[in-house]
Amino acid sequence: IDTPWVVKPEEKMKFDSIFDSLGPVGGMLSGDKVKPVLLNSKLPVDILGRVWELSDLDRDGMLDKDEFSVAMYLVYRALEGEPVPMSLPPPLVPPSKR
């Protein structure tokens, strides 16, 4: 399915700069680096747990740049009052992981 990624280029740039500021190792951020950033959103931990489940597409306990963008996208939408989906809609899957 060739749908554009819902993360817009300008959002991706913002998320990428946050990603870089967190000190990725080998292009990945571990859970203990991402966790405080997500907790900072003040969203309930069960919501953040679901955000992580949906973002860590390869379930390696780390987020790469695209996975981190998915996490941030979901957090920002949740802060705007949109529910976090139970499974990742295809337009939210990064093009690099389809």
């Binding site: 069960d46 747990g49 489940e53 379930r59």
Partner: peptide, 13 residues
Amino acid sequence: QYPAGGSSTNPFL
């Protein structure tokens, strides 16, 4: 799919 048992890779669980 949640892993059935075992260590979770989710730092929020």
